[in-house]
């Protein structure tokens, strides 16, 4: 029964999304892309905005540092990509945007991201700014109550890696588990 309701709800979501995609496409035939924006503080408190990265490709991952499996796997791939890019690495800025900002700030964001690669910039805003950023990137995250987890909750989130172009356009996503080599091949063709 629950399963049926779930299927119906997802079908409804699909219809709505399909309709939105269609109307958007009709309004702006050229624009299947969009421009995600953000204004979020780094660990020092300096607000970093999407505008300041104009001219660079952004590799954006949403995650939380208290995450032992999914997040390290993706961060590791980003690190691999940055290492292999060599001199082209200047044209790519990897960003880790915290979806669990309060706890991540307490645990230390820069310590976490730079352990994977020194080029990765960690950003953590307040709840409102984080929600706005996620909506801007059209990604999902939620806090799941789990009495057995540390602090009584864990996070669920869109685990993909997002590529934003030098003029701020959303270009594509690399779904969770995409090998570093595939990301590299795609990225090199764009630099």
């Amino acid at each position: 029964m629950l399963r049926t309701i779930q299927i119906i709800l997802w079908a409804a979501v699909a219809v709505v999304l399909g309709y939105l995609a269609l109307t958007r496409f009709q309004d702006e035939p050229a624009a299947t892309s969009f421009r995600p924006t953000f204004a979020l503080p780094d660990e020092t408190g300096t607000v970093r905005t999407s505008g300041e990265f104009q001219g660079k490709h952004l590799l954006v991952f949403f995650g939380f540092t208290n995450c032992p499996d999914v997040c390290p796997t993706t961060m590791m791939e980003v690190a691999e990509v940055m290492d292999v890019l060599g001199s082209d690495a200047d044209e790519v800025q990897p960003l880790f945007i915290s979806i669990d900002p309060e706890r991540d700030r307490a645990l230390g964001l820069t310590e976490y991201v730079t352990a994977f690669h020194p080029s990765i910039l960690g950003l953590a805003g307040d709840d409102a700014a984080t929600r706005t950023t996620a909506e801007s990137f059209k990604i999902f995250y939620d806090r799941d109550a789990d009495a057995n987890a540390p602090d009584g909750y864990t996070m669920s989130h869109s685990p993909a890696l997002y590529l934003v172009g030098p003029n701020g356009d959303w270009l594509r996503q690399y779904s969770y588990g995409t090998p570093a080599q595939e990301i590299l091949d795609d990225l090199k063709g764009r630099l």
Binding site: W10, C67, D69, V70, F140, D144, D146, N148, A149, T154, S156, H157, S158, P159, A160, S175, Y176
Partner: peptide
């Protein structure tokens, strides 16, 4: 668990 594009980590 990665389902419908969302990763979660159930106990």
């Amino acid at each position: 668990v990665v389902k419908d594009g969302i990763a979660s980590m159930p106990h």
